[in-house]
């Protein structure tokens, strides 16, 4: 029992360290992309017509005259303490406006994931065990359609039918802090449906192939030759081994959720991190872009690390390794 705990603990620690390391590398990348390359924040904000003097003064004000490595150090130190810097356009602390928006985004994405993940896994498994049959073919065509169309197409169709034609839901997902939980659910229902459709389709297809690769293992054939029913073979022999690959599929596909959330927020004018970031990009408010990008990337890295840890925890091979 001690052994089991040690191996698991060690592997989990490894995953956590790897996640932190990745996040560090990502922060360097984000900072480098926005700060070291030409066209810095000063010229971006002041425009091409600004005199060299104004640019110089502005650069000094922003601290851009210092070496990049020093600026990165300051930025990172701030980030670790929860300070993402100051917006160039509003001159307000970025953290103050980012945090409520990030919560909104988490609400939207979490709501969608809560429905999409079990739906996709269930449908993916059903498609896999019915490979080649009608259910599978329908799932294949429908999901292929859903991954092919852009997010905004799904969103506009939903608005056109459910909001404009039928008048069931609002066209815009306006939320404000004092809003009650069920009101929130109600106004976000269309963006959530759009997200579910996109994410479910991707996840379903990958779950299906993960389950199929387990089903082609010799021990599945052996289970049939032992006289087990199809149901028992799937429940007792296939699914326990498919769990780990399915978990990584889910984590991987949350990337589509992140991309989707940015576009969907813009379509429904939802006050989330995605819309905020897009806004900052068009205003070239680099510190805000950095902060938002870091939050998105951190979420993605964290979810993947979590998935890794989960697959370690449920793997019987690792649970009691000889080493």
């Amino acid at each position: 029992m001690r052994l089991f705990k040690n191996v698991i603990t060690r592997m989990i620690l490894e995953r956590v360290m790897l996640g932190i390391l990745t996040l560090f590398a990502v922060s360097v990348l984000i900072f480098a992309a926005t700060s070291i390359l030409p066209g810095d924040a000063a010229t971006a904000v002041l425009g091409q017509g600004a005199t060299p003097e104004t640019v110089k003064a502005y650069r000094e004000e922003l601290g851009l005259d210092r070496p990049a490595i020093v600026r990165y150090g300051d930025w990172l130190a701030g980030v670790v303490q929860g300070d993402l810097g100051t917006s160039l356009t509003t001159r307000q602390p970025i953290s103050d406006s980012v945090i409520p928006r990030f919560e909104n985004t988490l609400f939207l994405a979490g709501f969608a994931a809560l429905i999409a993940v079990p739906l996709a896994i269930g449908l993916g498994i059903i498609a896999a065990i019915n490979e080649g049959r009608l259910v599978d073919r329908v799932a294949n065509i429908v999901s292929l359609g859903a991954i092919s169309v852009p997010e905004f197409f799904v969103a506009y169709l939903l608005i056109l039918f459910f909001a404009v034609k039928l008048g069931l839901f609002p066209t815009l997902a306006t939320v404000f802090p004092e809003m009650g939980f069920f009101d929130r659910l109600y106004v976000t229902i269309l963006p959530v449906i759009a997200l579910i459709m996109i994410v479910t389709a991707h996840m379903l297809r990958m779950t299906r192939s993960a389950v199929l690769s387990v089903l082609s293992q010799p021990y599945i054939e052996m289970a049939f030759l032992k006289g087990l029913r199809r149901r028992s073979v799937i429940m007792q022999h296939a699914l326990p081994n498919a769990a780990a690959p399915i978990i990584s599929v889910v984590a991987l596909n949350l990337a589509y959720l992140i991309v989707g959330v940015v576009v969907i927020e813009v379509v429904f004018v939802y006050p989330g991190l995605g819309q905020y970031m897009v806004d900052a990009v068009s205003k070239r408010d680099l510190p805000v872009v950095q902060g938002c990008a870091l939050l998105f990337a951190a979420t993605f890295v964290a979810v993947n690390a979590l998935a890794d840890i989960l697959s370690v925890a449920i793997n019987p091979r690792l649970r009691r390794s000889r080493h």
Binding site: Y219, H237, P316
Partner: peptide
């Protein structure tokens, strides 16, 4: 032929 492939690794 292969015992290692015929046993389910999860049980």
């Amino acid at each position: 032929q292969s015992a290692s492939a015929s046993f389910n690794p999860a049980h």
